[in-house]
């Protein structure tokens, strides 16, 4: 899932500036599951902002709505009237959601209420960790299902650097060394020989470095008959 966390209330207030009519819009997918921007969080944030505006003597009309997926226009259309009516849209979607609103509603002023962090999973209640860097050319088949791009601080492909110690990365004792995880797993699975080849430099063109990416599936496109 896409994992995000809320911006501080102070930053959100700065983003809202002196807008009087605000719509907080939540998203029912990834950010609901990571408790950052679902209907519950949208309602709580709207409530907090209302209280703050009352305390500060700056009356704002703040409402909230949540759509199933901010990243698809058909879901956003269901909230079209509220979106068009608001002075500022505070999106509690990921960065994709914010941009989907901006693209679909050219006259709407939309600001982000979240910081989109990474693609990852919950490792325990209340803890999420990064797992995929969307490099566009998956190497998990070489490394036993542990990603060296996302989980090594240097994205090394040929083994650990000298900073691996006691199973953790030197940058932070709470960060496991990705290559220790790979090594342990490959050893357990009897596949260490897969780590002995010198892996060539990666094709980063398939990652973000190659520019904004797009997938076109001709088989799925709607072709209108002439």
């Amino acid at each position: 899932m896409i994992v995000a966390e809320q911006k501080t209330i102070d930053e959100v207030k700065t983003l809202l500036a002196d807008a009087r009519k605000v719509l907080v819009i939540g998203c029912g997918t990834c950010v609901t599951v990571c408790f950052a921007g679902g209907s519950r969080e949208a309602a709580i944030l709207a409530c907090s902002l209302r209280m703050a505006s009352q305390l500060e003597g700056h009356a704002r009309d703040i409402t909230d709505v949540t759509v199933q997926r901010q990243c698809e226009w058909e879901y956003l259309d269901q909230a079209a009237d509220q979106i068009k009516d608001a002075e500022v849209i505070l999106s509690l979607g990921c960065g994709v959601g914010v941009q989907a609103i901006a693209e679909r509603f050219p006259n709407a002023w939309v600001v982000p209420g979240l910081n989109t962090k990474f693609m990852g999973l919950p490792t325990e209640q209340g803890v999420w960790a990064e797992r995929c860097a969307a490099c566009g050319d998956c190497v998990l088949g070489l490394t036993g299902g542990v990603c060296p791009i996302a989980r090594c601080s240097k994205s090394l492909l040929n083994g650990p650097c000298g900073g691996s110690e006691g199973g953790h990365c030197e940058i932070d004792p709470d960060t496991p060394c990705g290559w220790q995880l790979i090594y342990d797993r490959m050893e357990k699975l009897g596949k260490l020989e897969l780590l002995m080849d010198v892996q060539p430099p990666k094709n980063w063109q398939k990652a973000r470095d190659g520019g904004p990416r797009k997938i076109v599936r001709e088989d799925l496109k709607l072709h209108h008959e002439e």
């Binding site: 040929n158 650990p160 650097c161 900073g163 691996s164 110690e165 220790q180 090594y183 010198v198």
Partner: peptide, 17 residues
């Protein structure tokens, strides 16, 4: 450095390179 068991092999990779 950890994992110590891998270090001679990693050295071997660099020599192979």
């Amino acid at each position: 450095a950890a994992p110590v068991e891998f270090r001679p092999y990693r050295l071997g990779k660099k020599v192979k390179a």
